[in-house]
Design a protein around this nucleic acid. Structure first.
Length: 845
RNA sequence: GCGGGUGUGGCGGAAUGGUAGACGCCGGGGACUUAAAAUCCCCUGGGCCACGGCCCGUGUGGGUUCGAGUCCCACCACCCGCACCA
């Protein structure tokens, strides 16, 4: 007996939209905090509104959606919001290229992408949606920025920037390619500009310490942040120079101080500039250093180059006069921009000393007896015993570090110092499409904060992108204001904030949106920290570090009472696809084809338009240039949201890359229909128990729950397939009915539309979106029969089915009685029998 | 160079130190059909086979163990991050 309502195929074309509307009408996914349910905040990194959702978004949001829906089924009140990281360069580029306004362009993109997301059926709380380009949002951001300024965490200083003279804008390091602007192609200049900074270094130690407790984060990300923060302990000390000046250097290896054979300063170090002032050769050398590229490959090849200043530095212990070089490998912005060079125990110093024929003394050796050992063509940076070092001889490296530091401090020429790689966060951008920095420059009063009651400082609408540069700077009226302090004529700051500031607190605004303030601390405390944050590994450092900083900073000024915004972080893999291409026989150029243009056979592929084969390339990250992209809209239209969602969860573990394939999505589509037919086998009139099926059902409930909580969606999917197969083989009856309803509930977070459609027919009323996760009967989790493996010398010979809990003696006896085992033993003497109850018996002869 | 990760069938991948390859995809065979689609069933790591089974097999080489994909040591390959950070 089957249910005729399931005779027709499941048609996502009509079902998807219907259920999406039903959820919206019922306001299913709007989160409220005024109840006793445990709170779960599930968040995926919000998208930049580029225009189209891409498949990577779909994977990211599907994972979050399954978790959010699952948590709801487990009785949690779930906050699962969505919004738009809406400021940024692409909008300005579009404005320059197409003559559209960044705002209009962005709003249109948001509308399109929102419609796309809705078609995939995500359980999102759209009532909390906002875009960071909403004046309301960035106004609150300005207020927070002013609060941080009040607290001394914001400052302004002159600093060097990459300046593109054609586009008249500052470029980030990654926008400078081979010394040229990535858009204009113009030679990039170093310029000094007054820039706004956030004092992230104030929290360097805190940010580092906090990582230790973030055990819901991948070790990889924690390590990356740790390296980025880059704490090092060392000695900073002063050399007396032959010209009477002092030179501060920093070293992490004070133990090797007796091995110093020269001193080196960076090309832009004041000592270098001094020397260059009346020395043309030095000047030329410094210029040359500045030209050197900074890419990995260039540095690899770059020779260690130096310029002998003629100055000498007096060694603090030996009094020896060490030559002072300007060296291209010394960085001005680390430590003091000057080093003591110990060629024996630092590879860079070694290369330099070898080139300029400077002494390479040994001061660390494997043992005191090896004090005279020569170097084998490389420095020895490792551990050992200090030698040739006066009072340090015989000490270990660590002890010697302490001893030197103590002496330096006693004698007053140096002290222990911690140096960080982390720099303060430069947030000034000379661009239009960002949060205006809420300050006013007054000739009399200096830099004056905009009073909070005059926030937001709104972006002007009437801007012109036809000429390069910052439209805010050029705007005829916008920047002219009266000074809030003296009332005199003054000018607005025309820089805007780095877009990473927008994403540094959006998760707070999702949790709480009171009028007139950024957020309500109490309401934020209901939801935060985010229980599960999901996004790409590309944000491992910048966004995630900035968000941690911002949260700490708000805690510091008493607006929050927690420091870490994201309790658990998950970084999902990319969606990949093979490439299809062909080399032009004439010019050898390779052209790529979209998957849609190609007919993929099992072992080759042909171009549909001409019937000739194309080359099948490696499975790589989807990119427009390689055309190995699929459009979520098209596949959702073709297969329905549920098949696409199912694909996103199947097969590949979520942290790894997921290869998209036509065959794979076809398989998902078939499974959607197979489930649909399966649901049609629900027969309310059927009776009869099947304990084996009951066990399978309950084991699956428990396993799928565990898998979803571990975000191991691929395993949950496999479990569901298994149960589905078992149900298909089962006889009609109450057990089968229960199993069918169970599958329906288990798949409902993953295939919510199919689940609603079937629930309407065979469920217990209401929306499945409001149904509870099935309860596990613990008693059914344990098998009463187990399969025992019988091994002979570690190799499997036989299996036995025995009642669970059978005694060791019984198992041994059964194992030895096995014909196959006896044949394998072949009369040899049994020396030992290992019995693992309910698992195996291993007979050793 | 430094740091981290990953290596399992044709492919994606399962596997608390205990039956390697669950589950999916591809492929093969069959059923249903006038035919196709859809669906269902069976097979599907390699090699032998007397059809009872046997041998080999988780990147390579060692080791620990009654037993290793899993633990230890060394090596190889690939991927990711950082990079002249003193």
């Amino acid at each position: 007996m089957t249910d005729t309502r399931f005779d027709a195929r499941f048609d996502p074309g009509q079902a998807d939209a219907r259920w999406q509307r039903a959820w919206e009408d019922a306001r299913c996914f709007e989160a409220g905090s005024d109840n006793d349910r445990p709170k779960s905040y599930v968040l995926e990194m919000f998208p930049y509104p580029s225009g189209r959702i891409h498949i990577g978004h779909v994977r990211n949001y599907t994972m979050g959606d399954v978790l959010a829906r699952y948590k709801r089924m487990r009785g949690h009140e779930v906050l699962h919001p969505m919004g738009w990281d809406a400021f940024g360069m692409p909008a300005e580029n579009a404005a320059m290229e197409k003559g559209v306004h960044p705002s209009g362009w962005t709003r249109e993109n948001i509308a399109n992408m929102k419609a796309q997301l809705k078609r995939i059926g995500f359980a999102l709380d759209w009532s909390r949606e906002f875009a960071t380009c909403d004046a309301e949002y960035y106004g609150h951001e300005q207020a927070l920025f002013l609060d941080l300024y009040e607290a001394g965490l914001v400052y302004r200083k002159e600093s060097e920037v990459n300046w593109d003279p054609v586009d008249m804008t500052v470029l980030a390091n990654e926008q400078v390619i081979d010394g040229k602007g990535w858009r204009s192609g113009a030679e990039v200049e170093k310029r000094k500009l007054n820039q706004w900074f956030l004092k992230i270094t104030h929290f360097a130690q805190d940010l580092l310490d906090g990582l230790g407790a973030l055990d819901g984060w991948p070790d990889k990300v924690r390590l990356m942040q740790e390296n980025w923060i880059g704490k090092s302990r060392g000695l900073q000390f002063r050399f007396d120079l032959s010209d009477g000046q002092g030179l501060e250097v920093y070293t992490t290896r004070p133990d090797t101080i007796f091995g110093a054979s020269f001193v080196a300063v960076a090309a832009d170090h004041p000592v270098a500039r001094n020397v260059a002032a009346d020395n043309a050769d030095a000047q030329a050398f410094i210029e040359e250093c500045k030209r050197g590229g900074t890419t990995a490959a260039e540095l690899e090849k770059a020779q260690k180059l130096g310029f002998d200043t003629g100055l000498t530095a007096r060694h603090p212990f030996t009094g020896e006069a060490l030559p002072v070089f300007i060296a291209n490998f010394v960085l001005m912005d680390y430590g003091t921009g000057a080093i003591m060079a110990v060629p024996g125990h630092d590879q860079r110093d070694f290369e330099f000393a070898s080139k300029y024929e400077l002494p390479i003394p040994r001061v660390v050796a494997a043992s005191a007896a090896d004090a005279g050992q020569p170097f084998m063509g490389a420095a020895e940076p490792g551990d050992g015993v200090i030698v040739n070092s006066g009072f340090l001889d015989g000490m270990g490296v660590e002890a010697a570090k302490r001893a030197v530091t103590e002496r330096a401090e006693e004698e007053g020429w140096g002290s222990g110092r911690t140096v960080w790689r982390l720099r303060d966060w430069g947030v000034s951008r000379q661009r239009y499409w960002g949060t205006p920095i809420p300050f006013i420059h007054c000739g009399k009063c200096g830099v004056v904060p905009v009073p909070k009651d005059r926030l937001p400082v709104e972006l002007p609408e009437d801007v012109d992108f036809r000429t390069p540069g910052n439209p805010l700077q050029r705007h005829p009226t916008w920047k002219h204001v009266d000074c809030p302090q003296c009332g005199g004529k003054a000018a607005r700051e025309t820089d805007t904030l780095d877009t990473f500031t927008n994403s540094s607190w959006y998760f707070l605004r999702f949790a709480s949106q009171p009028d007139g303030r950024p957020f309500d601390p109490g309401e934020v405390a209901d939801w935060l920290p985010v229980e599960q944050y999901i996004g790409g590994i590309e944000h491992a450092i910048l966004h995630l570090l900035y968000a941690r900083f911002w949260t700490r900073a708000l805690q510091h000024i008493g607006q929050l009472d927690f420091a870490e915004p994201f309790a658990s972080l998950f970084t999902q893999g990319m969606v990949t696809h093979e490439t299809y291409s062909r080399r032009d026989p004439d010019d050898g150029k390779r052209s790529y084809f979209l998957p849609d243009e190609v007919e993929r056979r099992s072992d080759n592929a042909i171009l549909k338009s001409d019937g000739f084969p194309v080359e099948i390339g490696r499975v790589i990250k989807m990119s427009k240039s390689k055309k190995n992209v699929v459009d979520p809209d098209e596949i959702v239209a073709r297969y329905g949201a549920d098949a696409v969602r199912w694909f996103m969860l199947s097969d590949s573990p979520p942290e790894r890359d997921l290869p998209w394939s036509e065959a794979g999505i076809e398989g998902c589509w078939r499974f959607v229909q197979r489930l649909w037919r399966l649901f049609g086998h629900f027969d309310a009139a059927a009776t009869g128990d099947d304990q084996a099926l009951d066990r399978k059902t309950h084991q699956t409930i428990a396993a799928v729950a565990e898998d979803i909580e571990a975000l191991s969606f691929n395993k949950a999917v496999a479990r569901i397939y298994e149960l589905a197969s078992a149900v298909e083989k089962a006889e009609p009856g109450s057990s089968r009915n229960a199993a069918i309803r169970t599958i329906l509930l288990l798949v409902s977070p993953m295939m919510p539309h199919l689940a609603e459609e079937a629930w309407q027919a065979i469920g217990t009323g209401g929306l499945v979106a409001g149904a509870a996760w099935p309860v596990v009967d613990e008693g059914l989790l344990v098998e009463d029969e187990v399969t025992i493996a019988i091994q002979h010398k570690g190799k499997l010979r036989d299996t036995l089915s025995v009642p669970k809990g059978a005694s060791k003696e019984a198992l041994e006896e059964l194992a030895l009685a096995s014909e196959k085992v006896q044949r394998s033993i072949d009369g040899a003497e049994v020396r030992k029998v290992i019995v693992v109850p309910d698992r195996l018996v291993n007979i050793v002869t």
